[in-house]
Amino acid sequence: MRILSILFFLTLSLVGLAQPAANVKLTNTKLGTGLAVGVPSNFVAMPDDGIAVKFPSPRKPIAVYTDPSGRVDFSVAVRTTTFESMDYAVLSKVYKASIQRLYTKVDFLKEDIRTVNGREFIFFEFVSTLTDNRRSSQLPPIKKYQTIQYAIKGPEVYVFTFTAPAEEQRQWQPTGLAVMNGINLK
């Protein structure tokens, strides 16, 4: 009887932790002609100087939204591409290899070509680990939970990235998946 009670309370606590993506509140945000994204309601737009510090690159994202702690981000970037939409199967392999080269270790949870709001996307969900392998380094590995979606529109590829600390994956996974399902690219 005691074991049954413990199992019951354990099940209830696990159900409470795993919130379905449908419960995530998103705010529809228009980023330009033909592009709207669902942003978690408590996220704020990162200012340009914050983007420049957190994403140091000559090709900065067109928008970055962050949670109040600044540890979880959703970014949207646009890059020029020579690929066409019919190349999604090939492009998926190219981007997977690119992701694997960026990190010391990548554990893919899901990879797919899927349709969201009438548009095809290449989708990856994974946990990345980046280790500083210098002999003098005392830094611990950086582990992140990430979802990334790619879509081609004309000569451009749109890159949507949701990133959270790996130790908070259970908390942020429903939000990351909801955000990816809230993209509307016409």
Rank of each mutant, 00 (worst) to 15 (best):
M46I: 03
A18F: 12
A22F: 14
L17G: 08
K25S: 10
P61F: 04
F8P: 01
G38H: 01
A22Y: 13
Y65N: 09
Q19M: 13
V44K: 13
V53E: 13
A63D: 06
L10I: 14
G32A: 09
A22H: 13
T66G: 12
L31T: 02
A52F: 14
G34T: 01
G38D: 09
L35E: 10
D49A: 02
I51C: 05
Q19C: 14
A63G: 05
F8Y: 15
V64K: 03
P56G: 00
M46F: 03
F55Q: 04
V15C: 10
T33P: 03
G34C: 07
F8A: 15
Y65D: 09
L17Q: 11
Y65C: 08
L31F: 05
F55M: 02
T33L: 15
F55P: 12
I62N: 01
G50D: 05
A36E: 12
D67S: 13
L14R: 00
Q19P: 04
V37R: 08
L31S: 01
L12W: 00
F43K: 01
D49I: 08
T33C: 02
P56N: 04
I62L: 10
R59L: 09
P56Y: 06
A52P: 11
F9M: 10
K54Y: 07
G50W: 03
S57C: 05
L7E: 05
F9T: 07
K60M: 12
K30T: 15
T33F: 12
V37S: 01
P47G: 11
L14W: 14
V64Q: 09
D48H: 10
G16Y: 09
V44Q: 11
N28A: 15
L35I: 07
V53I: 15
Y65G: 08
A63R: 01
L14T: 07
A21G: 04
K60R: 12
K25V: 14
T29H: 02
K54C: 01
Y65L: 09
I62F: 00
T66P: 05
T33A: 12
V39G: 03
V53R: 14
K25W: 09
T27I: 12
A63Y: 01
T66C: 09
A21T: 15
L31K: 06
S41I: 06
A18T: 04
V15K: 03
A18V: 07
K25P: 11
V64E: 11
G38I: 08
T29G: 02
G38F: 00
K60I: 05
A18K: 10
S57N: 11
T11S: 12
A18E: 12
P61G: 10
A18L: 15
N42R: 11
R59A: 13
K54L: 14
A45D: 07
T27H: 11
V24K: 06
L26N: 06
G38S: 07
V64L: 06
T66R: 00
A45Y: 02
P40I: 07
D67C: 05
T11G: 11
K54W: 00
A63L: 01
V15G: 09
A63W: 04
P47S: 07
L7M: 15
A45L: 06
A21H: 03
A18R: 08
Y65H: 02
G16H: 03
L10D: 03
V39A: 04
K54M: 13
D49C: 02
L17M: 14
A63M: 03
V39E: 02
L14G: 01
L26W: 08
F8N: 05
F43Y: 11
V39C: 03
